[in-house]
Computed example of a mutant assay.
Amino acid sequence: MELIETARFDELCQALGAEQVLMLVNLLPASYEEERVRLMEAAGSKDAGAIHRSAHAIKGMARNMAAGQLAEAALALESFDGDFGDPLLAQIAMLDLLVSDTVAAMQASLAAR
């Protein structure tokens, strides 16, 4: 799976325009951070339902923005039912990295247009 689903991202840019897509891309980190806070609270309180809801929201954001790897990682977290310790925190850390990498790749793609 690609970091950015190029064909879908191109369609998004054609439909909305590059400026509008750039605005959405730049909002992605803050939107993710809101869900990340919920994920960390859910991890601390061992609330699998809250983890599912936040992961589902992240997956939706990612799919809407053609962020393939981020969507797949969120999907994996959405079905979480395991240990609330280090494995869960590692999955959240992976999401953090994917958000950062995805935003940078999208910004670079838009700058090259």
Results as ranks from 00 to 15, higher is better:
1 M>P: 15
2 E>K: 14
3 L>A: 08
3 L>V: 02
4 I>R: 08
5 E>T: 00
5 E>I: 04
6 T>Y: 15
6 T>A: 10
7 A>C: 02
8 R>T: 10
9 F>W: 01
10 D>W: 03
11 E>K: 13
12 L>T: 07
14 Q>V: 05
14 Q>I: 05
14 Q>G: 14
15 A>E: 11
15 A>F: 14
15 A>M: 14
17 G>I: 00
17 G>Y: 10
20 Q>G: 01
20 Q>R: 14
23 M>N: 12
24 L>V: 14
24 L>A: 04
26 N>F: 06
26 N>V: 11
27 L>S: 15
27 L>T: 14
28 L>H: 10
29 P>T: 10
33 E>G: 06
33 E>A: 13
34 E>S: 12
34 E>C: 08
34 E>T: 14
36 R>S: 08
36 R>A: 02
37 V>R: 14
39 L>Y: 05
40 M>A: 09
41 E>I: 10
42 A>Q: 07
42 A>G: 06
42 A>C: 05
43 A>F: 00
45 S>R: 11
48 A>E: 15
51 I>R: 06
51 I>Q: 00
51 I>Y: 02
52 H>V: 12
53 R>S: 09
54 S>N: 11
55 A>F: 05
56 H>N: 06
56 H>A: 09
58 I>S: 03
60 G>R: 00
61 M>I: 04
62 A>P: 08
62 A>M: 02
63 R>P: 06
63 R>E: 00
64 N>M: 09
65 M>H: 01
65 M>W: 07
67 A>S: 08
68 G>C: 09
69 Q>R: 13
70 L>R: 00
71 A>L: 10
71 A>F: 11
71 A>N: 10
72 E>L: 02
77 L>S: 05
78 E>W: 15
79 S>L: 00
80 F>W: 15
80 F>Q: 07
81 D>P: 09
82 G>C: 00
83 D>T: 06
83 D>L: 02
83 D>G: 05
84 F>V: 01
85 G>S: 09
86 D>P: 14
86 D>L: 10
88 L>E: 09
88 L>V: 05
88 L>N: 04
91 Q>R: 14
91 Q>S: 15
93 A>D: 12
93 A>K: 12
94 M>F: 01
94 M>Y: 04
95 L>Q: 01
96 D>M: 04
96 D>C: 03
97 L>S: 11
98 L>C: 03
99 V>T: 05
99 V>C: 02
102 T>M: 00
102 T>Y: 06
103 V>T: 09
104 A>D: 13
104 A>L: 03
104 A>F: 09
105 A>S: 08
108 A>C: 02
110 L>A: 11
110 L>W: 00
111 A>D: 09
111 A>V: 06
